[in-house]
Design a protein around this nucleic acid. Sequence first.
DNA 1: TATGAATGAGAATTCATTCAT
DNA 2: GATGAATGAATTCTCATTCAT
Lengths: 208, 208, 208, 208
Amino acid sequence: MRKVDPEKHAARRQAILDAARTCFARKGFHQTSTAEICAAVGMSPGNLFHYFPNKQEIIGAIVDQEGEETAAFFQTLGARDDLHAALLDFMDLVLELAADAEFSSLALEIAAEAGRDPAIAMRVGRNDRELRSALQGLLAEAAARGQADATLDMADAATWVAALIDGIFSRVAVDGEFKPKNQHATMRVLLGRFLRPQADASTVTAGA
Amino acid sequence: MRKVDPEKHAARRQAILDAARTCFARKGFHQTSTAEICAAVGMSPGNLFHYFPNKQEIIGAIVDQEGEETAAFFQTLGARDDLHAALLDFMDLVLELAADAEFSSLALEIAAEAGRDPAIAMRVGRNDRELRSALQGLLAEAAARGQADATLDMADAATWVAALIDGIFSRVAVDGEFKPKNQHATMRVLLGRFLRPQADASTVTAGA
Amino acid sequence: MRKVDPEKHAARRQAILDAARTCFARKGFHQTSTAEICAAVGMSPGNLFHYFPNKQEIIGAIVDQEGEETAAFFQTLGARDDLHAALLDFMDLVLELAADAEFSSLALEIAAEAGRDPAIAMRVGRNDRELRSALQGLLAEAAARGQADATLDMADAATWVAALIDGIFSRVAVDGEFKPKNQHATMRVLLGRFLRPQADASTVTAGA
Amino acid sequence: MRKVDPEKHAARRQAILDAARTCFARKGFHQTSTAEICAAVGMSPGNLFHYFPNKQEIIGAIVDQEGEETAAFFQTLGARDDLHAALLDFMDLVLELAADAEFSSLALEIAAEAGRDPAIAMRVGRNDRELRSALQGLLAEAAARGQADATLDMADAATWVAALIDGIFSRVAVDGEFKPKNQHATMRVLLGRFLRPQADASTVTAGA
DNA sequence: TATGAATGAGAATTCATTCAT
DNA sequence: GATGAATGAATTCTCATTCAT
């Protein structure tokens, strides 16, 4: 009896997060009432607060969960032989996620909320740091293997890959003609040219 | 004497937009009360509605104004000799705007709102279409002059430049370590490699 | 120059009253904003207050005007030979007015407002007293001429004729099937039986 | 124990309706704020909206309730032997209700609101149709029993009885001297003469 | 007179959260 | 844990009225 409870609790908690994700994506965080989430889960309006102390914590938990998912995914990438290819495959996945309007909206929503609530900013920042650090590690190792341009500053390169990921999610919201499915090739050209070892390394020094 | 009235009206309207911009950037659109905006302008709480029929129209007007500013700026770019350089200069400007936290937050906020309110989405979409079309025109002309890789699909290329711009604004919100000022060089490397005429054109077909 | 002003003023005042009548009939007194009335007259929102000190006075003036119109009309009735017929003709007119939805709505609106605002109640009460007094006079004279049942209490009889008039206006609002045009005959039966000299006077004492 | 909840809910709902009735009668529907009603019930300002989705629904519910009460009362009338007397007794009741200033005001208020809000008009219209249909049924049966004038169009007759009822409530608002208690006798004369089987049927054809 | 900007007190909801059951 | 009634502050928007021009 006592053993089932924690499982049930976790399942219920997850159900809340899933419902909230959908609601937040559709209407935005502050446009969604806790009552709406409760209705979506099939829960009484007060009961939600047995699982989360307040609304902000729901977003916080969603952010944390996304961070965990990304990290888990990245762990599978390191084992690959061609890390450049691994990165491009990861970006393919991003494009696939972006094709899910809910996911894109949510990503934007979270970024926007990070701009306001410092507590969320901290959690989002942690995820982002981990993502960039993973990207940087991947790129550094790729460079070591001759699969990436070793002359790049890998922290900066990772930052711009991350910017590109953010940009993809923005596109979905902002550009009705943007179909992630059709953009895999151009994405590969863009990142390929940016990251591959350069025949003429002089271009690297073109900056400023 | 009679001429002053419309001017006053326009000035007051603009003051509202400016105050709203700041408020929205700081707290988000739906977190900002119309009363706060009024207080920021130094206006009684009801008076704002002599200038805008409702809150959504304030955001709408801000969006429209940003669109006009961008368009105006782009008109100056076409006259340049080196269009590739012109584009990079434009991106420098974007990085400078992004360094203004208010501007970045607002950009994100608008994108997020576009994901919810179709009326805003339409106005944002129009701006975005114009930006991409201007970018595409610039790139096409650059290619014709041998300043850009003519093998690229220019619509797609413009789309990814736009994604990068969006991404830059997201970075500011999401990545505390991101300092736009320090990223001009890497941005130039990234875009340079993507857009320049390629020595080895075969890389273009690397897709899928 | 100075002579034209009072005429213009009166015309403008009347225009306001006419517009207000329409607005009040359509949306109700408290649902109509002064701005709406101004728009209907083609007048700036502040200007109305040069003609009426406040909104209540507009209703008050409408009430007074209706009273004057009724009184004027009644003066023409007294000259008739058959006063019973004169009364029925008056009721025909009431039915015709009731066919005008605006007039009916307004009548109801005024009655309702009298139930709330004592100042309006006083003005409405004065009109009503005059109407009942005119009716009573008419009935008394009719009785004297053998055209009405002399055994009736003419004050009470007048009161019930007035109630019937009120009731007609209510019908229009409340009963979608009520078409005043079709009710002239039944009205005449009803009032005829009530007011005519009775063959069998014993029925009069049937009460209580 | 579980059964108490719905009862409590219904009781609270009824308390709101009762308070609202009083407030609406005193100040009019649109002059009464929801906060006032809440205060009258002893309820926090937001709590009312757990019981009614909006203010209009409160009026709607009051209208429906009045309809039910009238219908319930009418069911008791049909069993009577003398239906003419039954009708007059019903009218006595109307006069007694009219003596309650709150009831009269409310009746007027509802009629006025029906002139504006179609949703209310529909509900009021339904009640009115039922009342007239009940009256018509009563009159038809009375005629069949020789207790009413069979030559009357019973639908029209019912309509005019209804008009008289409306008129009574208007009187209270409009005529300060009108005391329903003193008008039972005259009402009985009026309706008696209108509805009773006529000695001289020729009067019926007096119309137009 | 006429204009329309300005005021500021409300209005009806809404909503996160609490709490008795 | 679960329910849903209750709270009360906050929100957007309205409106009669004033007043400088």
